[in-house]
C-alpha cells in the first residue's frame, strides 16, 4: 500500500497537519496513487481521528521511540525542516518533501534543508504551496544522498595524533 509519512519531530506544526489532511491535499495524494497517510504530530494540538479522512487510510500518533520503521515503509516522507528529520529520511533513502514553517523565520535549522534542496536531495515548499508542489513533483529527479563518512574523520585524527 503506497504510504505517505508526515513527521514534525519534537516540535508542533499544526498548520502542516491541517493542510495535509485537507480535502484538497488528500485528493491530490490519492490521484498520485497514495493510499495510506501516517502522521507523527509531536506536540501539536491536532491529532486527527482515523475516520476523519475519506480519501486515504489515516493513522496518527504523537511520538514513538523510533520512527525508523515508519520511514522505511514510506513511499514519500513529508517533513518539517528540522535537521534530524531531514537526515533520517534521506539516510533511509526515502523521497523527501520538506514543508517550511514560515512562522519560524531566521531559524538556523532551515539552513540545512535549504542547502539539501539546492543540492537536489529534497523538495521544498510552504504550507500554502503544498498542493501545487505535490501535483507537479517529479520524485525521480531527486539526487541520491550519500551518507556522511565518519571513517574520514577517524583516519584524519589517527594521522594527526600519531595513532597506529
Amino acid at each position: 500500500m503506497k504510504t505517505v509519512f508526515v513527521t514534525v519531530g519534537t516540535t508542533s506544526f499544526d498548520e502542516l497537519i491541517e493542510r495535509v489532511t485537507s480535502a484538497e491535499v488528500t485528493q491530490e495524494l490519492k490521484s498520485r496513487g497514495y493510499e495510506r497517510l501516517v502522521l507523527q504530530v509531536g506536540r501539536g494540538a491536532l491529532l486527527p481521528a482515523a475516520d476523519s479522512c475519506s480519501h486515504l487510510r489515516l493513522e496518527a500518533f504523537r511520538f514513538k521511540d523510533s520512527i525508523a520503521e515508519d520511514m522505511r515503509r514510506a513511499d514519500l516522507v513529508i517533513s518539517h525542516a528540522g535537521a534530524g528529520s531531514c537526515l533520517e529520511a534521506l539516510g533511509a533513502g526515502r523521497p523527501l518533501l520538506v514543508v517550511v514553517n514560515d512562522r519560524l523565520m531566521n531559524n538556523h535549522q532551515l539552513e540545512l534543508a535549504a542547502q539539501l534542496h539546492a543540492d537536489g536531495h529534497l523538495l521544498y515548499c510552504t504550507c500554502s504551496t503544498l498542493t501545487g508542489t505535490l501535483r507537479d513533483m517529479d520524485l525521480s529527479a531527486l539526487q541520491p544522498f550519500q551518507p556522511g563518512q565518519p571513517k574520514n574523520f577517524a583516519n584524519f585524527l589517527d594521522k594527526a595524533l600519531g595513532v597506529k
Partner: peptide
C-alpha cells in the same frame, strides 16, 4: 544533548580501541 549526542556518536563510530 539530543541531536548533538547522536551526531557525536556517529563521528566516533570508526575511532579505534586506541581511543
Amino acid at each position: 544533548s539530543g541531536g548533538h549526542t547522536s551526531e557525536i556518536l556517529r563521528l566516533m563510530e570508526h575511532l579505534s580501541a586506541a581511543y
